[in-house]
Design a protein around this nucleic acid. Structure first.
Lengths: 230, 230
DNA sequence: AGTTATGATGGAACGTTGTTCCATTCTCAT
DNA sequence: ATGAGAATGGAACAACGTTCCATCATAACT
């Protein structure tokens, strides 16, 4: 008998991994990835860096937990009951929007494949591909391609965010890159030249979705079957 | 008149950006990304860190130059004259193999979109898509999707390399991840469970190429036209 | 040839970071 | 009340990127 009491709260402001991760996310969101140090975090929590290490193994552990939090929220908020193709697109867009809102998540995803968030994403796409009519033998490769697309865009988005962190205008920033591209040798870079003009006005989100659709189209074409699609 | 003499070589072992980049690549390749510091680099070149900064703006600049070197070599070594689809696959495989041989290139590519290497890759895929029969309006999105796939795989590859840097066996490493995946709740992760078994034995290079083919298939399906494909 | 301005060099020093260490405090079971 | 272990907070350490500066070598100019 004698069931141990749950540990009572030590103080109302007691430290815990949840509180630490929450504070870290706040700092990352408001001041960018560069602003998260154990010192700013300790200051934000009114404690010392040593105390944080009691709850968190190291910075990677902390970032992994924060990333998991964000991704888990995305997976939980997904609308159910949609047709297969729409379900896949909704998942992809949910991930994109989360990464767009928290660029540091993009950095983490694109450099940490052991992250607990990855199986979640994998499961999300993989299980929905079943309903899309993809035979079992082709599911692994098809899922990987979709996941890679998400992670690839995540990394580029995060990199862009790091760049125009100080800048006000996003279009102006893309304009600068377009100008650099336009200054390349037209003989060696004809395509880049032609495309540079579209750079400042293009919509990342839309282009991301076009990519998802291209991949889905390729999956369909590679796996013609009797299953209902749409 | 009096044409200025070209600067004579100061000493045979004079420092230069080329020599610095070359040394950096050696360190990165043999000892991994973590091993490249301005101190190890200075020791390798038998000089001081200050001297390096005379030729190189900062570490980002150095890494960008090193990455450019590798990518430029890939673009130069491509076989010409192949049919469009094969040309695209050859380019993709060339990039994959380079990133596989130099994982640190993957890290750079997936976190630096302003890199001079990116327009090169863009041009490589974009110009070849023309021959593939993609109408001009669709070329930007199609190219982006291919580039994103390469950059996405680059990032994941680099992350994997960072992980089993110390380990001997790659299959054993994948086996560990597969085991982690297999320990997830089967009710919530049925797909991940089914796929975990394929993880240790799957071939990254082959799966990368399947992704390229899926995207190409999607591009074909989205742009039916009279142009010769194959 | 001697002088001078500038190109280059090498190493010390600075500020910041992640992490470790440790003396101290707090809480609970006895 | 007391001892044990959980938890805390801040000092200290090692490593890093970068800056600074005293010094040397070379090319141009008298």
């Amino acid at each position: 008998m004698a069931i141990k009491k749950q540990r009572a709260v030590r103080r109302t402001d007691a430290l815990s991994k949840e509180r630490i991760v929450e504070a870290a996310i706040e700092i990352l969101d408001s001041d960018g990835e560069g602003a998260l140090t154990f010192r700013t975090l300790a200051a934000h929590l009114a404690t010392g860096s040593g105390a944080i290490y009691w709850h968190v193994a190291n910075k990677d552990d902390l970032l992994a937990a924060a990333t998991n939090d964000v991704i888990a929220r995305v997976m939980a908020d997904l609308p159910g009951g949609a047709r297969p193709r729409e379900a896949i697109r909704a998942l992809a867009l949910g991930l994109f929007d989360a990464i767009d809102a928290h660029p540091w998540v993009g950095t983490q995803l694109s450099r940490a494949p052991w992250l607990a968030a990855i199986p979640q994403i994998f499961e999300g796409f993989g299980s929905r591909l079943e309903g899309f009519g993809v035979p079992e033998g082709a599911q692994f490769d098809a899922t990987s391609t979709l996941v890679i697309h998400v992670l690839g865009v995540a990394g580029q988005n995060a990199a862009n965010a790091r760049l125009h962190a100080h800048r006000t205008d996003r279009t102006a920033f893309l304009g600068e890159i377009a100008q650099q591209w336009a200054q390349l040798d037209p003989a060696r870079y004809p395509f880049v030249h032609r495309v540079a003009a579209q750079l400042p006005e293009h919509d990342d989100r839309e282009q991301f979705l076009v990519g998802i659709d291209l991949i889905l189209g390729g999956i369909e074409a590679a796996n013609p079957g009797p299953s209902p699609r749409t």
